[in-house]
Design a protein around this nucleic acid. Structure first.
Lengths: 143, 143
DNA sequence: TAATAAACGTTGATTAGTCAACAAAAGTAG
DNA sequence: CTACTTTTGTTGACTAATCAACGTTTATTA
């Protein structure tokens, strides 16, 4: 019977790791002169990967609420990285990347890859693969 | 040569997992009638585990900046979960838990443990142990 | 068809985190 | 001892997330 130690729990570890990685990524973005944030970039990548969709669908995919997505999109639209289109259902806005948005995804994917590689530098290829599988399994279990 | 896929990176996975776990924990806290948040609770636990220290030290331990810690402590102090004491160095405030603060740690540790156990329900004991080791190793590499 | 329900995006209020700048106190050097 | 530097906590401005409430528009159903 093991004692539960909070600083050793997935909750603590993922939260802390996530925060540090975001800080590193933010610094990397900033050093290129851009003021796009990691969260804004994440949203761009999701749209790029999953294709056009409306704000509610984005919210569900990102596990955030609609208000959070709305405000992120406001920032992205101001920077001309994204546009909202209205179709026949006038409640819904279809979100898609602009030319600049697509470029931003390309440029910052490299920065993101670098950050991840640095983070994983302590692992063998097998360990890294293992970690990835375990995290994916965990995510699927809780989402 | 593997292609880098962002939704498969530690950055994406840890951030998403962390967010979902926080949401679950928040819901659990709220269902007990408390308005203490997961982040506030985390800070309480750190103080409880690591002993009294000042705000700068807390900030460093939590990988947040001093302003963030200051504001969290303001909330905790308002709720009488924490007190700031001044010693000979009048710049520095030593933070310690109140009676209520200690009780809060106990009560919510159980909720936290439940949340973690539910999250890990898809894993064998060995897998869970493995995940923990890998996350700890990763954290040590980046912090 | 008319009334009701659901979906969508939006807004305001609150908690959280970062950054830059600041005053006050303590430490260091000349 | 005085001048400079560092440390500590604080504040304001900003991005981010959540919750509750709201108005429109679409869908359902009685």
């Amino acid at each position: 019977m093991k004692k539960y130690v909070f600083t050793d729990s997935v909750g603590y570890l993922t939260t802390t790791i996530s925060r540090i990685l975001q800080q590193k990524l933010q610094a990397k973005f900033k050093s290129t002169g851009s003021n796009t944030t990691p969260e804004q970039w994440r949203l761009l990548v999701v749209i790029s990967n999953e294709g056009e969709m409306n704000q509610s669908q984005l919210a569900e995919l990102q596990h955030k609420d609609r208000a959070a997505i709305k405000r992120l999109l406001d920032h992205l639209e101001t920077k001309n990285l994204v546009i909202r289109k209205s179709g026949k259902d006038s409640r819904s806005h279809t979100i898609s990347l602009t030319q600049e948005g697509r470029k931003m995804v390309q440029v910052f994917t490299k920065a993101s890859e670098e950050t991840v590689n640095e983070a994983l530098s302590c692992f063998s290829e097998e360990e890294a693969k293992n970690l990835n599988q375990l995290l994916n399994k965990l995510l699927n279990n809780i989402k």
